[in-house]
Design a protein around this nucleic acid. Structure first.
Lengths: 249, 249
DNA sequence: GCAGTTATCTGATCCAGATCATGGAAGGCA
DNA sequence: TGCCTTCCATGATCTGGATCAGATAACTGC
């Protein structure tokens, strides 16, 4: 019954051409964030961006580095984490194409509070914070969109805080898996595959627990037929059942 | 040694005239957020606001209510909290004069995710979200300031998440007290008084623990001479010593 | 000043989940 | 194909802090 098949996660690495300057404008124009902008403006904005390719595992920046750039994920997955003095880390988010990270503002803190590391190889677009601020200045619509995005992130962070304080581990892991499934899920024969290499450590850091406990909970979910998992991958086989786990027991 | 004096917290309730329409413009113009704006613009903005006085304990809004207004604290203290299904709550923030809460955006969620309750009687200024958005639209500088404020709140939320996951209760309480002291502290003979009525329950909800544990930690800090406290009040007598508690043991 | 109510303190017990420890399975690479 | 490394599962033990339960102290209203 225990399936230990080869990881079904799409491990195709980002090809160099995915990160080429040719595709940059196309990528930017597809972003919901920039939608509705005249082509001309988009053209100008495009010129301020540079593209960077990274290998999986690389750090884009680390907590404490001077915060001077804003990044957009063009392709690949990026994990945002925060370090605690005691060595225990928290995985704040796993970002996918179209999402922002880095410094949205030059006001306030002068250094990054979090660390950005590539979960897969990826292609990033990057812009200096000041340039981005000028863009926001010139296009108030974008500023409102940015505010909406940030409001959402504040809610997300508060939601997680609430969960960690008030819910037992199993429920937190259920919530975490559902969120991952919703965001990064890909339909498969065996269910909703979380389409990113995800270790037990990663899951633990997202749910605010230890890898051992994450493993135990996952084993239990697996033997109940709610999820299917293996080395570095997890698939949700029964979303409804998993949703139930967020409530009781 | 144990001091159980009368609460030194300033309990002067907001007088009606503090919330009068006469003072509204003055209050708004003093806000750092609106500083640098021409008087004319401020005049216009002022017209969009309404003022409301509330009694301590009242709810401004509750989680789930339709989110259609943004509030500014003119006078008094407002606590922002979030409910967990299990009954345990989290106190997200204690806001004081000049701070915003409510709905910064009409995009996204249509209802408040949190609850706003008055910690003291207070005077609030309120504006419809759409009106506020129009103001941001018209004054891009304000939008950038709003973004900076939200970035700060995101960092704060992530910081607290990290603390809850990685630090033991005593350290979390020490951090909480230091933050409160920094934000709401008033110098007194006996130290830095946290100038707001604050019960053990409130402190527990801020630090993500139970009132019993909060009480125990506080007793221990008190017998070490680091803080001084009583019914509904806490003062930090030795800031440096408290800072040390955030690190070791 | 007294009775009732609310906030706080503190002891005793309990348990979810962290920690410690070990063995096994999957993938990488020569 | 076999060695080596990394990841995962799972048992055993331990403990920080929650929970349960009274006992005090402070405020409120009369």
């Amino acid at each position: 019954m225990k399936s230990r098949r080869k990881s079904p996660v799409n491990t195709v690495t980002t090809e160099p051409q995915h990160c080429s300057i040719d595709l940059r404008l196309k990528i930017l124009s597809r972003l919901p964030f920039f939608s509705g902008l005249p082509a001309q403006a988009l053209q100008q904005i495009n010129q301020r961006f540079i593209e960077i390719g990274y290998e999986a595992g690389n750090f884009v920046y680390r907590a404490g580095d001077p915060a001077e750039r804003l990044y957009v994920v063009a392709d690949g997955k990026v994990k945002i984490l925060q370090h605690a003095p005691g060595g225990r880390d928290v995985l704040l988010d796993l970002l996918t194409s179209g999402e922002f990270f880095g410094s949205l503002t030059t006001l306030g803190a002068a250094s990054y509070a979090d660390t950005a590391q590539l979960q897969t190889s990826a292609c990033l677009l990057s812009i200096r914070s000041e340039d981005f601020q000028q863009i926001l200045d010139a296009h108030p619509t974008l500023a409102l969109k940015a505010i909406a995005i940030m409001a959402e992130r504040i809610n997300l962070a508060n939601q997680r805080l609430l969960q960690v304080v008030a819910l037992p581990v199993e429920q937190r892991i259920a919530f975490t898996l559902l969120a991952l499934g919703k965001k990064l899920g890909r339909r498969q024969e065996n269910g909703l595959l979380i389409d990113v290499p995800l270790s037990r450590d990663d899951l633990a850091e997202m749910a605010g627990t230890t890898p051992e406990t994450a493993s135990r909970v996952l084993s239990q979910l697996q033997s109940s037929g709610v999820v299917d998992s293996g080395r570095q991958w997890i698939a949700i086989t029964d979303v409804d059942a998993l949703e139930q786990r967020t409530t009781q027991s």
